[in-house]
């Protein structure tokens, strides 16, 4: 473990908590893409299958349980409890256009052709693009509530911090995983225009306006 990865995990945890609290407190999931949340739940489910078979540490197990529980709780809030506030008309990104390439790529580019490894690879590639429906929805509605933009900033920062973690591990532990690194860079790059707007606007108290 290193400070970059710890900060990344904390940022990730913060993002998930911010989103849960936003929906729970405002009793509304307006502006939130249910499709992205479905993709995140799929990501954690396929990545953490080793939750019960491969004990790494208490921290690792704890975080996996929290991420799984929080992502399914968020889906329950969006599609069940507060489904009347779910903005279906703006959450229209065709996720099959993400699932197909991710599936093909995970079958072609992986470390080992075993079910567990393929599912792990699939989850890595899926996570890289899982935010697209949410970013698409924000661009369609043309704006995002400030709490939603804080969620996005924390979520985007987490994988950016993981990139620093991979640089650290490469030099300090000679460890690297090209699949995770490639997907992590793509994932972080997708947030770039949002990061720019967040830093130039939201931090000055203005609303986040994405060019529609």
């Amino acid at each position: 473990m290193n400070i970059f990865r710890l900060l990344g995990d904390v940022s990730h945890l913060l993002a998930i908590i911010i989103l849960l609290l936003k929906i729970w407190k405002t009793r509304s999931c307006a502006g939130i893409s249910g499709k992205s949340q479905l993709l995140f739940a799929l990501t954690y489910t396929t990545r953490y299958l080793d939750l019960v078979t491969n004990f790494v540490s208490v921290y690792n197990t704890f975080m996996k349980v929290v991420f799984l529980a929080a992502s399914y709780a968020t889906i329950w809030l969006i599609y069940m409890k507060f489904r009347a506030t779910y903005d279906q008309n703006h959450d229209t990104f065709r996720i099959e256009f993400l699932l197909l390439p991710v599936t093909i790529l995970s079958l072609v580019a992986n470390h080992e052709f075993t079910l567990i490894e393929i599912l792990w690879t699939w989850s890595i590639y899926l996570e890289a693009v899982a935010i697209l429906p949410q970013l698409f929805m924000v661009s369609k509605t043309g704006e995002a509530e400030s709490i939603t933009s804080h969620y996005l900033f924390a979520l985007g920062s987490y994988r950016g911090l993981y990139i620093l973690n991979w640089i650290y591990r490469y030099y300090m532990e000679s460890y690297y995983d090209l699949i995770a690194i490639f997907a992590g860079i793509l994932q972080t790059v997708l947030y770039c225009d949002f990061f720019y707007l967040y830093i130039t606007k939201v931090l000055r108290g203005q609303r986040l306006q994405l060019p529609a």
């Binding site: 995990d9 080793d50 790494v56 975080m63 993981y162 995983d177």
Partner: peptide, 10 residues
């Protein structure tokens, strides 16, 4: 690529 890495990252 990493050898039999224990997948210790989240």
């Amino acid at each position: 690529p990493a050898e039999e890495d224990p997948k210790d990252e989240l």
